[in-house]
Design a protein around this nucleic acid. Structure first.
Lengths: 250, 250
DNA sequence: ATGCAGGCTGCACTGAGTGCCATACATTCC
DNA sequence: GGAATGTATGGCACTCAGTGCAGCCTGCAT
């Protein structure tokens, strides 16, 4: 990942200096109140150099997304037919989470920034869209030939991104405390359960099970059936939490 | 905002003149090669007036989305508990399609434009995002209190938008020929079947019936016991949705 | 030292977007 | 009738993001 594995690294220190100077000024006086001239002045470099490293002022806020997108593309390109497609794109999404989790403090700072600045929200959207398109492109390939293949690919890609962002945001909102992966794993798990295996052949079994159960309880092999008993006046959220706990164990 | 009720509405002809001039120049020499000064010169108005009607140059490309978003918000706000939530957001999405279908020629022209210009694609993304947030906000309200309510809301909103755009784009790509609604209806139908009405995958429907079969509920409702039977691999969302439906009936 | 290459800087320019003020026209109040 | 007020517009000057160009400085090979 970190590009050249070897020692030298010595990447462009200028890039990092610009990012550091930019974020310091952004947090001090805000994004829009900070001009590019302010940034380069603090970093002690020429104005022209800023735009050599960052195509636009917004790009300095997302310095590592380009690399992450390349990683995701490579990850998907390295997939084989043995991988379950939905599972695969969920794992690809986790690469983004990983990038955020590597620098919690930075990620939280950036999150606060993008929340406040509409221009940055719009820019982040275009970044996220590129991830989504990468996922959708992969799924389109895997679903090629299936009826509604591209539709299915687009919808699943959008759902995966939405779930990932939902989990990611809840982690960011908690200032990066706790396990970043837990919320995202849970969210992606929901989507995966919803979409994985192209099971068009619906079960239609539970209805029969129920009659069997109500009629002769002992006869049913309850390995794939879950029976929950609760008082009707119990708070719904508690019932559901219980349900969730049981289902997650599976 | 008003423009309300009555027929004439005294629309600003200047706004329309600016849109017409802009699109004429955009199609002649391209978006980026057209400056705001070019537009106002062709429209015969002052430069300052352009920015009075459109906050930015990009806005002139999407002159009616603000109104459409307001319509959608009103539509969702006017919803009641009798509406099935997923069905409702699908119908809300159809409002957007309707707007596109009202001016096929204009919509196709804009589609070609946004395809070519990255800046416009990014801007369109931010517009679409506002629709998605409106849908998600509504769903969050409907799913309030349920575990993973916001997650479900976000995922479904994203899926609905993705499906809508998939259908819309296939219509736009065909130069506005054929039925605009057909493709979108089909796409939204797929999403609706996936997320609403768990009839096909069928978890948890018998909850009410099982309580009846236990036979102890009629006498003392407070002590009523609820028995829920479901497949273990059924999506939790659906189980919860059914649970909610049963409990709401009480 | 000389020549060369690549990164860096300064400078001038375009174009989007904003704030301020002046003008033109319609409305209302005296 | 005329003054005051409100609103839509035009004009001007300004900030700032982003770009093209030319020069400079440093490291490096000959």
């Amino acid at each position: 990942m970190s590009s050249s594995s070897a020692a030298p690294a010595a990447k462009p220190p200028m890039r990092d200096a610009l990012v550091a100077a930019a974020f310091r000024l952004f947090s001090e006086r805000g994004y829009e109140q900070t001009t590019v001239d302010d940034i380069v002045a603090l970093a002690g470099v020429g104005r022209r150099s800023f735009f050599r490293y960052f195509p636009s002022k917004e790009d300095v806020v997302f310095p590592d997304h380009e690399r992450c997108l390349a990683d995701m593309t490579a990850f998907l390109a390295a997939s084989g037919p043995e991988h379950e497609p939905v599972r695969r794109v969920c794992d690809a999404a986790r690469l983004v989470l990983q990038m955020y989790a590597e620098n919690p403090a930075f990620s939280v700072q950036r999150y606060r920034l993008t929340r406040k600045v509409p221009g940055l929200r719009a820019y982040e959207l275009s970044v996220v869209r590129r991830y989504e398109r990468a996922l959708a492109r992969y799924l389109r390939g895997r679903f090629a030939g299936l009826p509604d293949g591209t539709l299915r690919a687009d919808v699943i890609a959008a759902a995966v991104v939405a779930a990932h962002n939902n989990g990611l945001r809840s982690w960011l909102r908690s200032d990066g405390q706790g396990d970043a992966g837990a919320a995202v794993d849970h969210a992606l798990g929901c989507v995966q359960r919803e979409f994985a295996h192209p099971r068009d052949a619906g079960p239609a079994r539970p209805a029969a099970r129920v009659t069997a159960l109500t009629g002769e309880q002992a006869a049913s092999p309850a390995d794939d059936v879950l029976v929950l008993v609760t008082r009707r006046d119990a708070p719904l959220w508690r019932v559901v939490r219980e349900l969730e706990a049981v289902l997650d164990r599976a």
